[in-house]
Design a binder for these strands. Structure first.
Lengths: 221, 221
DNA sequence: TTGACTATAGAACGCATGTTCGGTAGAATA
DNA sequence: TATTCTACCGAACATGCGTTCTATAGTCAA
């Protein structure tokens, strides 16, 4: 990363701020004369002069001779813009199987959770569940946390998944748990997220894998 | 919601497509004449004609007599404006005080985390830290989790906060922990998120509150 | 047929807008 | 001191660009 210490004059900072503000408000970059008034510059030629400096400093890009041809060079924008809306399908309770919504239910969901795409990678058919109760603290998941699941993603060895146990085990009396799963023949190894806890085993026919956990979100404020 | 079935002519669809493509590529809306060429319309007056129709159909907004004053009315835009970019300022390690970035550092952050605004409420001056190590599992926080903190938010009774202990306690040998804090005179009650663990107390002068935790995000895929 | 309406073309109008040029003043340099 | 460089101003220039006007067809209903 080039840490070129380009000193910005007061005018140049004002111009940058004005442009960012203008774009946020109008969805379109300003004209030279709008910059002139907005940033309190005395003449259009001065604006042009400063814009050239800012362009040299890589702080914005210009399209020559194009009206409103000035876009701020914000590297954050590149990362930005990709969001994903995930339907919030209900609650996940330890004593019941997790809801597995069909396509219609997904479309009609009233509440949605919005997160950035890079949080969930390429996973498709996402839905979210709110965790009720604190019986999943062994998965480091608290009451009120939101787990984002993928309906269609295959669960591979080592993935965190929602597992519904049709026969309760001794170790874990709750029926639905979030664990990392490993396929070992007819057995399933279930490993808690909490590294201080030991994995345990169930017979595969006594476990239903209900979905792959893609992301967990906790609002604390 | 008005479900007015506005039939779009071929030209109008082409215009819409061209504008969206142009904006994606140039970050600036096109001019009338660029639309004319790009969408294969015969004259500028025809473009104007079609744009009026599209505006009536609520498919785009126009700023009268402004160059490039045409913005597509994409409902997804509304969603994306509800997002917030949070600079990822580094790692939080149990044995060191958490980084507290100043304004410059916030602006220059290279990585950002994007989440929906409703995840963080009205909190201002947000920054994010990646948790390194698994010494915070008592706060239900794992290695690799991302905690979103507010630099300026006041920490009130019961808020989850990052606390740096200048004198190690017996209960918790790590120096920085995430706990719910309660102010009790000269003492501070620190309550782990894990409900099976008991709160403990430190003298206020031995603890620095480093920020309020607003949200925790865990990518598991 | 006539009249109303829509779709289309081409050109012209007039303000918007990016650019450039001549000139001034102060600071730095040689 | 003379010179060069940067910051600045005001005005003019040339084109960009949205708008509008006129004219031509085609369609449909009365």
């Amino acid at each position: 990363m080039s840490t070129e210490t380009t000193v910005l004059t007061e005018s140049q900072q004002k111009i940058l701020e004005f442009i960012t503000g203008y774009v946020e408000k109008h969805e379109v970059p300003p004209t030279i004369r709008e910059i002139q008034k907005g940033a309190g510059i005395s003449s259009t030629s001065m604006v042009s002069y400063h814009l050239k400096a800012l362009e040299r400093a890589q702080l914005l890009n210009r399209y020559e001779r194009q009206s409103r041809g000035v876009v701020i060079n914000n590297p954050k924008k590149i990362i930005s813009s990709n969001m994903v809306s995930i339907p919030l399908m209900g609650r996940i309770v330890a004593s019941e199987p997790a809801p597995m919504p069909d396509a219609d239910a997904l479309r009609d969901a009233e509440n949605v959770v919005q997160i950035a795409r890079d949080m969930v990678g390429n996973a498709k058919d996402l839905y979210a569940l709110e965790v009720k109760g604190n019986s999943m603290i062994d998965a480091l998941i608290n009451d009120g946390d939101i787990v984002v699941m993928s309906k269609s993603a295959e669960v591979h060895n080592g993935d965190l998944a929602a597992v519904y146990l049709t026969v309760d085990s001794l170790k874990d009396p709750s029926s639905v748990t979030l664990k990392r799963v490993y396929f070992e023949g007819k057995r399933l190894k279930l490993k808690p997220e909490n590294p201080t806890m030991k994995p345990f085993y169930v017979e595969a026919r006594h476990a239903q894998i209900q979905g792959k956990v893609v992301c967990v979100i906790r609002r604390t404020a």
